[in-house]
Structures are given as C-alpha cells and as structure tokens.
Nucleic acid binder design. Structure first.
Lengths: 225, 225
DNA sequence: ACTGCATATATTATATACAAAATACATTCC
DNA sequence: GGAATGTATTTTGTATATAATATATGCAGT
C-alpha cells in the first residue's frame, strides 16, 4: 500500500532556496521584476515569509545565471538586457539551433517524429485561430522535442538558457509580440529536413528560422522609436 | 602619493564567497577534488578558516556551473564527468568554436591579428621545445584572442565554460596529455582563414580543430584500457 | 543656498545558533 | 545470526545575531 504516495512525498522536497530561485527567475523573465530594480534581502525575505539566508543563496544562483548583477556590499539588481546582448544571444542561438536540428535529423526516433508533427499541427491551428498563449506554448514544445532529439544534454542546457533570455527580451521591449504566420512555413521546412534525415538542410532551416526571428526583432525595435 | 595603492585596494575587495568559489573551482578542475568526493560545509569552512555561510554560497554557485551536484538534505559532491558528457561538450564546442572563428574573421582588428600571430609562434616554439606548461598556456591564449575578436560576449562566456569542462576531463582521464605537433598546422590554418577574412573556411578550420581533439581523446581513452 | 563633516540609518557580509533530516551504530527481539 | 527498532551523531537547512560598509540625513559654517 501507499507505495506511490510515500515515493512522491520523499522525492518532491525542495529547499527554500530553490523555490525562491524559481520564483525570482520567473518574476524576472515575465518582467514583474524590471531591469535595474534592486533586490533587497530583507524585503524579499519578508515578502516571502522566510529568512534572509535562502534568499541570499537564490540570488547567488541568479547571479551566475546572468539574470542579476551584483556590486559587492551594495547589493543585487536585476540585470539590464541591451539590444547588443540579445543580438549576441541570437547569434549563438542560430548556430546552436542549427546544430541541435542537424543532430536531431540523425538521431530522432519515429515516435518523436510523430509527436513533432502533432505539435506542429497544433501550433499551426493556434496561429490560425490567433490564440497567442496557445501558439507560444506549442512553439516552445516544438523546439523542445527537437532539442531532446539531439541527445546532447549540454546542448539542451545551453539552448534553454538562451531561449530564456530571448523570452525576457521580448517581454521587456516587445510587449505586443505576435507569432507571425511565416513561422508555420519555417517549422514545416525544419520538419521536412528532419524527417528526411537531411542534417545539413536541417541545420540551414533552423539557422534561417532564428535569423528571421532576429530580423523580426530588429524591425520591431525600429518601429518602436 | 599612494594613489596607485589606494586605487587598487578600493577595487580589489572580493567577498569571501568569491574567493572560496574560485578556490574550489580550481581544485575541482585540476583534480585536487575528485569526482564523487563529498563537499562538507563545516570541514571546508574550518580548513579555510571561515564560517559555513560563504562556503554554502560558493557551493550554490558551483552547482549552477555544473561542477558539483546536490542532493537535498544530503549535501554536495563533485560532479562526475562521463565520456558521454565530454562528447556532448565537444560536439557543442566544435560548433561554437566554428562560429567564434568565423565571426573573428569578420571582426578582428589588425592589432589582434598581430598578437594572434605572435602567440601562434610562441606556441609553436614551446611545442618544439616540448615545454608542456608553456604550450598549454599559449594554446589557451591563442584561442582567447580569437574568442575576444568575435565581439560576442555571450559566446565567450559559454565557450569558456566548455573549455573548463574539457580541461577537467583531461585531468581526470588523460593525465599524461601532451600537445601534438599537428596542432601547429591546425593553428596555422585557422590563422590563415582569419587573416584572409574568409569566414566559412575559418569556421571549417576551427570545427576540424575541435573534431581532431575529440578523436585524439577517443583514441587516448581506448589505449587506457 | 551650498559645502564639509559628523552622525544616524540601512544594507550587505559573515558568523553563530537552532531545527530537521540523514546516517551510523548499538540494542533488542525473533 | 539477522532483521527491526531506537538512539546518538553528523550534516544540512533555516533563522538570527553581530560586524563592516554604504547611503542618507542633519547641521554648522560660509
């Protein structure tokens, strides 16, 4: 009896620092905590009903992830994210998405191809229906399947971090972002390349996909002025 | 007077957690702390003559950098580093070194080309003289110049982390590593491509360079058995 | 009003204290 | 002897206390 229950309870303990880390990270990514905003330990600790210790540890982790900057003895503040920063990120991401997609073309399983196509369809449907939340979610899923199919854990870890930064940039600068219909075609190209196990065209398609995002961002930035 | 001195003193304050972080990181990379070894807070704190708090914070940072793993309520231990892990790292690094070198071909300055060639020569000299320490140091410098010339800070940050892991792997598995003379030729190819501003051949040369390292590692591993 | 300085306040940095869980070890019971 | 249980010890998790530094405030002197 109770085998399932006790198993779950034993494994899902999370130290406070992790809870706080995730909470703060999420808050930074969705823009609830704005760039430059100070993170004061007592204030955060009180708001969350804990002591300063786990808050400090969470901040140390955010610092290494690049979401906050620290000045010794002056405290932490939410990292700024310049256009140059995000261009750097996208430059790297184009390359790594290319790599991931090429690897996926070589290593993906039949089941994964099936679910990739499934998510591809769901994405297209949401875009047609102009369901933004849904389409974003499916877009993320789509790329996650590809990353997982690369069978390269280090690559997955890095790309996740890059995506996080792009997401954050969008929230800060492009609050009204909508996924354009061209994405459907680009996804189709990627799927075709993967399905036909053509690594080099998979690489090209994925790179192009990111480059187009980059251009879209540049264009949006120009219209903002 | 004392202008220089006071300036240095003012800027040079480092929180204990940073000192400890660097100390532990170095110890892990050079293999002084071995994979799987437990990191106990009181023990480390006593050895370093500080309290547990900064030690804990340093461990949190190492955790995010991937050098230690944690089990909640059981403590931290030095991360294992499997052959699969390092193959993943090298797969990513091949791609990113390619990117960095291609970008460098487009963005490098004349001064940087000069110092690149200078370091290239120093490296070759050390290899000829079979000065291992010197050649390793110059090899690192050589690649650092290229990374810097890419003008992409995010890329630099990621590649540094990847290099760190490769270095650690070498220490763990290949204690008797020597830089082979083929590296001289590979470096020359890279320099040629960069100097002639040929981004695509720079990319190819850098990727090949890493792939060769990968093969050398695989070969070394086989002879170890 | 403005500067220079003293002092108060706020904030981080480090150390210590206490609580909770994991581990090791002994003891009991079969 | 071996499993089960209880207890002591170790170790981590969290909270709090103290020290050191940075920032803000107020006031004298001009």
């Amino acid at each position: 009896m109770a085998g399932k229950l006790s198993k779950i309870n034993l494994n899902d303990y999370k130290p406070l620092r992790e809870v706080i880390f995730n909470t703060l990270r999420e808050a930074i990514i969705v823009g609830e905590l704005k760039p430059g905003e100070r993170l004061m330990e007592v204030q955060l600790a009180e708001k969350m009903g804990v002591s300063r210790t786990p808050v400090r540890e969470a901040i140390r982790m955010l610092e290494l992830e690049g979401l906050v900057n620290m000045l010794p003895r002056k405290g932490a503040h939410v990292a700024e994210l310049s256009v140059k920063d995000i261009m750097d990120v996208l430059e790297v991401r184009a390359s790594l998405d290319g790599l991931a997609t090429a690897l996926a073309a070589n290593r993906i399983t039949e089941e994964e191809i099936k679910s990739l196509k499934h998510v591809q369809n769901q994405f297209a449907n949401y875009v047609e229906k102009e369901n933004l939340q849904g389409s974003i979610k499916k877009d993320v899923e789509f790329h996650e399947i590809i990353y997982r199919s690369s069978r390269n854990d280090k690559l997955i870890q890095i790309v996740n971090n890059l995506r996080e930064q792009v997401q954050r940039f969008r929230v800060i600068y492009l609050k009204d972002y909508v996924s354009p219909k061209e994405l459907i075609k680009e996804h189709a190209e990627i799927v075709d390349a993967i399905t036909s196990k053509n690594a080099s065209s998979a690489l090209a398609a994925a790179e192009k996909h990111i480059r187009n995002q980059e251009n879209a961002i540049i264009k949006s930035l120009k219209t903002l002025r």
